[in-house]
Design a protein around this nucleic acid. Structure first.
Lengths: 123, 123
DNA sequence: CATGGCGGTTCCCTTTTTGATACTGGGTAA
DNA sequence: TTACCCAGTATCAAAAAGGGAACCGCCATG
């Protein structure tokens, strides 16, 4: 019998949502779209340095979750544009808080990490 | 020659910090400690439903990054307490924005997902 | 004619991550 | 005596994530 976490109120929901949109590429796509507004597939690919396979999967999931819209124009060569939905924008705001914190505090983390490693080496 | 992303200003830093503290267990530990104040190892383990291996790794990284403190008391059986540092508290604030968004919008994501799947099945 | 670009999908292979299990050691409760 | 608890560590197996290349149709360019 497994020990099921006693965190039914919010922990499980957070776990759920993190499992869905908490991966690296999803967050980076959201951030990119939030900054640029609308982007095409290969534009995102070059911008993020992500493989087309991962980008394809990531965008499909984000569209499925209602965070981005996909608009295809029947041109040759094909043109497909991605942009955030209202829900996606709202998520982008929350992500922005996190990424801003990251930018502001990365140096402090680096320092703490160096200190820790130095202390470990002496021990 | 690989295509190196043109996102040198903030994208790489965000990528860095997400690689460090953006994983599921780190975020959940931060949230748990933020809510409870101080917790012991097995207390966290039971609360989150995480394997001891992952919890051990996660806590060591969080301590290394200066986000949590680890205090061991030489009792028998051993007692080890974890709590957020000031930096960890500050990170907790940013995480809280994200987790609150998760709680508020998970239903909407579920709906969008169901709609998408239904539309796919008809196609 | 051959090549390249767009926006993907599919297959294969490698790397990374994660979970489960067993072990430590000493005190304490059954 | 036997079993359990805490706070881990070490090891192995399974699963997931991710990269690379090949392929699609179709048009423009060299």
């Amino acid at each position: 019998m497994k020990d099921i976490g006693h965190c039914t109120t919010s922990c499980d929901r957070i776990k759920d949502v993190l499992a869905r949109i908490g991966d690296k590429w999803s967050l980076l796509v959201i951030i990119a779209l939030k900054g640029t507004g609308v982007m095409r597939f290969n534009e995102l690919k070059r911008h993020l340095g992500v493989s087309q396979r991962m980008l394809s999967i990531t965008l499909r999931e984000l569209e499925r979750d209602g965070l981005v819209t996909r608009t295809a124009y029947p041109t040759v060569p094909p043109t497909v544009e991605y942009q955030l939905t209202t829900l996606g924008e709202s998520f982008g705001m929350a992500v922005r808080t996190l990424s801003q914190w990251a930018i502001d505090n990365l140096d402090e983390i680096d320092t703490a990490r160096a200190d820790y490693d130095a202390a470990q080496q002496n021990a």
